[in-house]
Write a protein that binds this DNA or RNA. Structure first.
Lengths: 331, 331
DNA sequence: ATTTATTTTGTAAACGTTTTCATTTTTAAC
DNA sequence: GTTAAAAATGAAAACGTTTACAAAATAAAT
């Protein structure tokens, strides 16, 4: 890989001139510019982003980090797609870290990101008191959080109306006549889980159904635990007639259990899930689900972050997007 | 962020000594080491990976790139997970680029990766003659390809037995008595598509079924085109009684069309897909599919790459993993 | 107590940029 | 043909590391 120096030699000018040609282009003679441009082309020169970033932080080094809890969850993938489209348009490179809901891994990745001198970070932190992310905010790194906020610090956040989304789902179940509505929820410490739980309880109340603590179970937000929890629910002495599942992986886990038991949906057991997928229609049966505008969330995050990188002082924003209940035939 | 210099000052030693403490640790007095370690802790010092990488390429800078054609395809996500687990174990950071089957985007990302001085690259190139990837190989960047090879260069490749996988699927359909077996295939120029097509044709032949060019359609390997192509197939004057779909997104697209038309699977139309998903059992009906060991592919790629980074001279390897037909009830 | 070997430490260059400042060249003004 | 102003260029420092080499301090050997 050639360097500025090589180009400079080839063009018979100093590296400063080459740098000027590449960057602003101000104050450089047309004929030398042509010579330099030519040398660049001949050597197929590409500036080193590493050197650039070392020399002057956040001046066109254009690197932003993304921290994601679970890359196998299509929701986060869609968010990522949204982020990516915006960063691509704006000429940022992306370094993506997936911590698999593992806090140790998260810490490591954050250290790496910091050490890579990223210009900014889009993150769904492990939880609201995530010390490392909070300290990064305090150190002045531009950050946008999504899916989960951060306690006690001033930071941009993009969220979905979790409570309302869950409410709509469970309310729909209740109005459809289901009496014993269970919930398989995600990691209990996550704000999103808590809010979805809240929506669940409010919908029960609203419809005059009593809350039975035995009917709500908390797992790790992933497929396997949902398989097990659904099994427990269905095995209990007084099983539910409907289940509200806290995210898409949980939904798939619950479906797996239901199908293994050869139960009919919705006759034997109804189900509504948080998180819609474009192939929900191809599930057995077509799934009724709460749609979160994941791609949109990603776009918004990226936009907010780029704004903040450009203007670190601008007041922080909390953005709440709405969900939508996609009614199909699983209840 | 503190630098070596800050630590050195605080500990009252030179930066060289600090560097020694951090890295090899050889030849440094116990008491100074303690002093330095202390200063590091107090200042919460973190070495800059950027500076490190600039100074000495591929010496513990530990950054590898991953180039993926479609992050929304669960297959690639699973591969990514495999890669990630190995790189995490080996202390590499990952920079992931998703080019969405867009060659322009791919080129840009490859330039960025090169410019970020990555130590190595794991890629599923846009096609076999991918000029940019080939030139990177020639420049000596350690590379491992998966899903698709590279024409005319010596490079490590991890593949799946595509021909055989497709053969097994279509053979199963034929043996089950289906006579007009269609195929919805992916991008025609991709080696994986070509090999799957080949398996499809061989299985027809093997079972004495004639090949009808009208029954094989090529799309862009994604969901939307499959919706359309499946529709075309089903609308044709002499429609198929079974469909073999070339990857998981195509399968989901085809299922969408079939369900929209309220056709019964497998009575009205049977279907077997390439790519299994853990929730295939929850589809309507439970899907018969060709399983590719995606996670394993990822792990292998990462292992091969790390080996190559350590030993650039070692002869290149082509690794072919086997597929497995998961029989459920869609045919 | 001197010499020699060994361990420990420091100095300075290098990686590839950007950018300030000084210098040279060109242009304009008289 | 001077001089002043403007434009173009270059030299060098800086970013934060690693590392070759030199130097100093310590230990060992005589």
């Amino acid at each position: 890989m050639g360097s500025l120096n090589d180009v400079a030699k080839k063009a018979g000018v100093s590296i400063a001139t080459v740098s000027r040609v590449i960057n602003n282009g101000s104050n450089v003679n047309e004929v030398t510019r042509a010579r330099v441009l030519n040398a660049i082309k001949e050597l197929r020169y590409q500036p080193s982003r590493v050197a650039k970033r070392l020399r002057s932080k956040s001046v066109s080094s254009n690197l932003i980090g993304v921290l994601i809890p679970d890359i196998q969850n299509p929701f986060y993938v869609d968010v990522l797609r949204g982020i990516e489209d915006v960063t691509y348009e704006n000429n940022y490179a992306l370094i993506m870290c997936n911590f698999q809901q593992d806090e140790k891994k998260e810490k490591l990745y954050l250290d790496i990101l910091q050490s890579e001198s990223i210009d900014g970070l889009i993150a769904a932190p492990a939880h609201e008191k995530d010390a490392k992310v909070i300290s990064l905010v305090k150190e002045g790194l531009p950050i946008v959080c999504f899916d989960r906020g951060l306690q006690g610090v001033d930071v941009d956040v993009v969220l979905v109306n979790n409570r309302e989304g869950a409410f709509k789902a469970v309310d729909y179940l209740a109005k459809a006549g289901y009496k014993r509505i269970a919930a398989i929820s995600g990691l209990e410490h996550l704000p999103s889980s808590q809010l979805r739980d809240k929506g669940y309880r409010e919908a029960l109340e609203e419809n005059g159904l009593s809350f039975d603590p035995k009917l709500i179970r908390h797992g790790d937000s992933k497929h396997e635990s949902a398989v097990r929890l659904c099994d427990e629910l269905l095995s209990s002495e007084n099983p539910p007639d409907a289940i509200f599942t806290g995210n898409n992986l949980i939904t798939l886990g619950a479906l797996e259990t239901i199908h293994k038991r050869k139960l009919k949906i919705p006759e034997d057991i109804a189900i509504v899930g948080f998180d819609d997928m474009y192939w929900s229609i191809s599930l057995n049966p077509p799934l009724t689900a709460v749609y979160q505008p994941a791609y949109e969330i990603g776009r918004r995050c990226a936009e907010l972050l780029i704004q903040r990188i450009k203007d670190p002082q601008r007041p922080s924003i909390q953005m709440i997007l709405n969900t939508q209940l996609m009614i199909r035939s699983s209840c």
